[in-house]
């Protein structure tokens, strides 16, 4: 629901409002993680580590629905639609460009809401584990979630054996998006 760039505002103010709109989105990913069966069985340390390394990637999946790849536009939850050039002024052109490509590939798979949610759970527990202590527990949780995702997708499309592998191929894409863009700068005014 991020109101970006009415013409009268300076790019600094635009940058601040864009930065602000990440905060609620991150909090929603934290709540989502806590609802994943088994996630809260992990140690608190490992929950925090997975969230720190996986949240950006989950956000990228969530934001896909805002992107209209054909027209290269982004529609925020408040209904405001922006073209890619107008958002380039925010200096996030390269991230947005990658997002259009990623959302086109993910969108073409035509996942249902619950399949997308289960995929996001897999994305989170598949995130970088360098800070994780009990790797075995995380791997077990990942295996369970991948099994659940596979059975949900194959039960609905018994004759389509390509969809599930195509979906898993999005995981490295997300890892690349994360490595390329999570160091984007945000700015917050301190009063």
């Amino acid at each position: 629901s991020c109101p970006v760039a009415p013409a009268s505002r300076s790019s600094q103010e635009v940058w601040e409002s864009f930065s602000q709109c990440f905060t609620p989105a991150v909090k929603e990913v934290v709540e989502f993680a806590k609802s994943i069966p088994g996630f809260q069985m992990l140690s608190q340390h490992d929950q925090v580590m997975l969230l720190k390394s996986g949240t950006f990637q989950v956000l990228m999946v969530r934001f896909c629905s805002l992107f209209e790849p054909k027209e290269r536009t982004v529609t925020f939850l408040n209904g405001q639609t922006y073209s890619l050039p107008s958002l380039r002024a925010l200096g996030m052109g390269s991230l947005l460009e990658s997002m259009f490509d990623f959302s086109e590939k993910l969108g073409s798979l035509g996942l249902e809401q619950d399949e997308m949610a289960l995929f996001m759970a897999v994305v989170l527990v598949s995130a970088d584990r360098s800070g994780v202590v009990e790797v075995g527990a995380v791997e077990q949780l990942q295996e369970n979630l991948i099994k659940a995702l596979r059975s949900l997708i194959t039960s609905r499309r018994p004759d389509d054996s390509t969809l599930f592998p195509k979906l898993l191929l999005r995981l490295p894409d997300l890892r690349t998006l994360n490595n390329q863009h999570s160091d984007k700068l945000l700015a917050f005014r301190i009063d």
Binding site: V26, V30, D183, K184, L185, L186, F188, R189, I190
Partner: peptide, 25 residues
């Protein structure tokens, strides 16, 4: 003049997560 805190997206995400877990301890 207004002062600004500039941080990366990744640091901003980490900050919110740390805050959330600290609050729920």
């Amino acid at each position: 003049p207004k002062t600004h805190r500039v941080m990366t997206l990744a640091d901003h995400i980490s900050h919110i997560i740390t805050q959330d877990f600290a609050r729920n301890q």
